[in-house]
Lab assay of single mutants.
Amino acid sequence: MFYPNSPQTSPQLTQIPYGQQYAMMQRQIQQPYHPFATTEPQARLYPYHYQGPIQQEQGGFITQQSTAASPQYVQMRVTPVDQSIMSGYPNQTANGSSSSSFNYNIHPQQQQQQQQQQQQLRHHAMPVGSVPLQDDRYRKQLIVNYLAPDVTSTDLHELFSRFGELDGARIIYDKQTNMSKGYGFVYFCHAEDAKEAVERMSGYEFHGKWLKVGYSTNPLNIVPSNSSPYVHAGSRGAAG
């Protein structure tokens, strides 16, 4: 039997160049792979992502010199942007860049009308829970959420009447099932009393439920100042 490094198959040491006398086997001759043993700084910083320098080929596509990437890492192929796409944008300079302001050559009167329309939209648009300043009635009506099913309009009136005089209180019921929808409205005579009720009743436990109280901004629920107070009856038909 002959071994790869046996004296019968191995040459004389004098015939082997210096430095390879003890590297006779194939696994010894093959050098191990060192990912950080390279002179390129990109490979030292990113050993798993770097795959060699990027070269520009004919046709405008950018390719990489090395083989496919590892399945664990996804390499994105980048193509140059066609400058003709950006030619339609206004205020574009000769080098292809555009300024931040756009001039669509709008007539001054049209621009003024658009600004007025935007101001009107901001004036009428009102986020949930906010209180408008032009109508004091919005500051007097509250919406009470997360009410228990057994709470009546009379219970709601008695709960909030300790903060001040009320114009009314009612629970909203479903017309088909005649069941409470879980929320109601309270109408105060003074805005200061309503503000105190919002601050003190939010998070209050009532009939096993934690109440959420806020201003009601729905104009359909506003009680006119010259109208008669609501009837605080315990029956659902009268309260709904």
Score class of each variant (00 low, 15 high):
Gln31Trp: 15
Ala94Met: 08
Gln92Leu: 13
Gln116Ala: 07
Gln114Ala: 11
Val74Phe: 13
Lys209His: 00
Thr93Phe: 12
Ser98Gly: 14
Gly96Arg: 08
Glu57Ser: 10
Ala238Glu: 03
Phe36Ser: 03
Lys175Ala: 04
Ala238Lys: 03
Leu45Thr: 04
Gln109Glu: 10
Ala197Leu: 01
Val223Gln: 08
Gln31Ala: 11
Asn218Cys: 00
Leu13Arg: 05
Glu196Val: 08
Gln109Trp: 15
Ser87Asn: 06
Asp135Gly: 04
Ser100Ile: 15
Ser180Leu: 03
Gly96Ser: 04
Asp167His: 05
Arg122Lys: 10
Val74Pro: 05
Ala169Asn: 03
Arg122Val: 13
Gly52Tyr: 14
Asn218Tyr: 00
Gly184Arg: 02
Asp150Cys: 08
Tyr48Val: 11
Met126Asn: 04
Glu192Ser: 07
Gly182Phe: 03
Thr217Ala: 01
Ala194Asn: 02
Ser100Tyr: 10
Pro90Gln: 11
Pro71Arg: 05
Val213Ala: 02
Met126Phe: 14
Gly184Cys: 08
Met24Cys: 04
Asp150His: 05
Ser227Ala: 09
Pro35Gln: 08
Tyr204Asn: 02
Thr38Gln: 15
Leu133Cys: 10
Arg122Thr: 08
Gln115Glu: 07
Tyr204His: 06
Gly96Asp: 06
Arg77Phe: 15
Leu220Pro: 00
Tyr3Cys: 05
Gln15Thr: 11
Gln117Arg: 10
Gln120Thr: 12
Gln21Phe: 15
His207Pro: 01
Val144Asn: 03
Gln83Arg: 11
Gln31Asn: 10
Asp155Cys: 03
Arg44Gln: 13
Thr9Arg: 04
Lys195Trp: 14
His34Gln: 04
Gly168Lys: 05
Ile85Asp: 11
Pro53Gly: 10
Val128Leu: 07
Ser100Thr: 06
Gln56Tyr: 15
Gly203Val: 00
Gly60Met: 09
Val198Asn: 03
Gln31Thr: 07
His123Thr: 11
Gln58Cys: 15
Arg137Asn: 05
Met126Gly: 09
Val144Trp: 05
Ile16Phe: 11
Lys181Asn: 04
His123Lys: 03
Arg137Met: 02
Phe188His: 01
Ser180Cys: 03
Tyr173Trp: 10
Pro108Gly: 14
Tyr173Val: 07
Glu57Cys: 14
Asn221Gly: 02
Phe36Asn: 10
Gln64Trp: 15
Asp155Trp: 01
Ala238His: 13
Pro90Met: 12
Asp136Lys: 01
Pro53Ala: 12
Gln58Ser: 12
His34Lys: 03
His34Val: 05
Met24Val: 14
Asp150Gly: 09
Arg122Cys: 13
Gly184Asp: 02
Ser202Glu: 02
Thr154Gln: 13
Leu220Thr: 11
Gln26Cys: 07
Lys140Tyr: 01
Ala239Ile: 14
Met126Leu: 08
Leu156Val: 08
Gln92Ala: 12
Ser6Glu: 05
Tyr18Ile: 05
Gln30Gly: 08
Ala238Val: 09
Gln119Leu: 11
Gly52Asp: 08
Trp210Ala: 02
Pro90Ala: 12
Glu165Met: 09
Pro229Gln: 12
Val78His: 13
Pro127Thr: 06
Phe2Met: 03
Gly208Tyr: 02
Ser225Asp: 05
Gly214Asn: 08
Gly203Phe: 01
Ala191Pro: 14
Tyr215Leu: 01
Tyr204Val: 03
Gln111Phe: 14
Gly182Lys: 02
His34Met: 14
Asp82Ser: 08
Ile16Cys: 09
Asn105Gln: 10
Tyr3Lys: 03
Gln8Leu: 13
Val151Glu: 03
Tyr173Cys: 05
Val151Asp: 01
Phe188Ile: 02
His49Met: 13
Ile106Glu: 07
Asn218Pro: 00
Phe188Tyr: 05
His207Glu: 01
Tyr104Gly: 04
Glu192Met: 14
Gln64Asn: 10
Thr177Leu: 06
Met76Trp: 14
Arg77Cys: 15
Tyr18Phe: 13
Glu205Asp: 04
Arg44Cys: 15
Gln111Thr: 10
Gln21Tyr: 15
Thr152Gly: 06
Pro4Lys: 04
His123Asp: 07
Val144Cys: 05
Phe206Ala: 00
Cys189His: 15
His124Trp: 15
Glu57Leu: 15
Ser161Ile: 11
Thr9Ile: 14
Lys175Val: 03
Tyr187Leu: 00
Gly129Ala: 11
Thr67Ser: 05
Pro7Tyr: 15
Asn221Glu: 03
Tyr173Gly: 01
Leu156Lys: 03
Phe160Asn: 01
Gln141Tyr: 00
Pro149Lys: 13
Gln134Asn: 06
Gln20Thr: 12
Gln92Glu: 12
Thr152Pro: 10
His232Ser: 05
Tyr187His: 01
Leu156Glu: 05
Ser10His: 09
Asp167Glu: 03
Pro127Arg: 12
Glu196Pro: 09
Tyr89Glu: 03
His190Thr: 04
Ser99Pro: 12
Ser97Val: 09
Ser153Lys: 03
Gln114His: 07
Tyr33Asp: 11
Gln111Asp: 14
Phe2Leu: 07
Pro53Val: 14
Gln118Lys: 05
Glu192Tyr: 09
Asn5Asp: 12
Val186Ser: 00
Tyr33Glu: 02
Met179Gln: 12
Asp167Arg: 01
Leu211Glu: 01
Ser202Pro: 09
Pro4Cys: 07
Leu220Val: 13
Tyr89Leu: 06
Tyr46Ile: 12
Pro229Leu: 10
Pro53Thr: 11
Thr14Tyr: 06
Leu147His: 11
Gln120Pro: 11
Lys195Ser: 08
Gln176Trp: 14
Tyr230Phe: 13
Tyr104Glu: 06
His157Gly: 07
Pro132Tyr: 15
Pro229Cys: 05
Gln113His: 12
Ala169Ser: 08
Pro4Trp: 15
Pro132Ile: 09
Ser6Gln: 08
Asp150Arg: 05
Val186His: 04
Phe36Pro: 04
His49Leu: 14
Leu211Arg: 01
Phe36Arg: 07
Ser202Tyr: 06
Gly88Asp: 06
Gln83Leu: 12
Glu40Cys: 11
Thr63Ser: 08
Thr14Met: 14
Phe185Gln: 00
Gly234Gln: 10
Val213Arg: 00
Ala94Phe: 13
Met86Glu: 01
Glu196Ser: 06
Thr39Gly: 10
Pro229Trp: 11
Asp150Trp: 07
Glu40Lys: 03
Met76His: 06
Thr93Trp: 15
Thr39Cys: 11
Ile29Asn: 11
Thr39Pro: 12
Tyr146Val: 00
Pro32Met: 06
Gln72His: 06
Ser98Cys: 07
His124Lys: 02
Tyr104Phe: 06
Pro127Cys: 09
Pro224Ala: 09
Tyr18Arg: 07
Gly214Ala: 08
Leu133Val: 04
Ala125Ser: 12
Gly59Trp: 15
Gln110Tyr: 10
Thr79Phe: 15
Thr63Val: 13
Phe61Met: 07
Gly19Lys: 07
Pro219Asn: 00
Asn218Met: 00
Leu121Gln: 07
Phe188Thr: 01
Gln141Thr: 00
Gly164Cys: 00
Ala239Cys: 01
Ser202His: 02
Leu121His: 07
Ile222Thr: 09
Tyr215Met: 01
Gln118Trp: 14
Phe163Glu: 01
Gln113Leu: 12
Gln55His: 13
His207Phe: 05
Ser6Phe: 15
Leu13Thr: 10
Tyr104Pro: 07
Asp174Val: 01
Pro4Glu: 02
Phe185Thr: 00
Gln112Ala: 12
Asn103Gln: 01
Met179Cys: 10
Lys195Cys: 11
Leu156Ile: 13
His232Phe: 08
Met201Ala: 03
Arg162Tyr: 12
Ala238Ser: 15
Tyr33Cys: 08
Glu165Lys: 07
Arg200Pro: 02
Leu147Pro: 10
Pro229Asp: 03
Tyr173Glu: 04
Asn226Asp: 03
Gly129Ser: 08
Ser87Ala: 10
His157Val: 07
Gln20Asn: 03
Met201Val: 04
Gly184Val: 01
Ser84Asp: 09
Ser225Thr: 13
Phe36Cys: 04
Gln176His: 12
Ser99Arg: 13
Asn95Met: 13
Tyr173Ile: 10
Gln12Pro: 03
Pro149Leu: 02
Asp155Lys: 05
Val223Tyr: 14
Asn95Gly: 09
Met179Ala: 09
Ala194Gln: 02
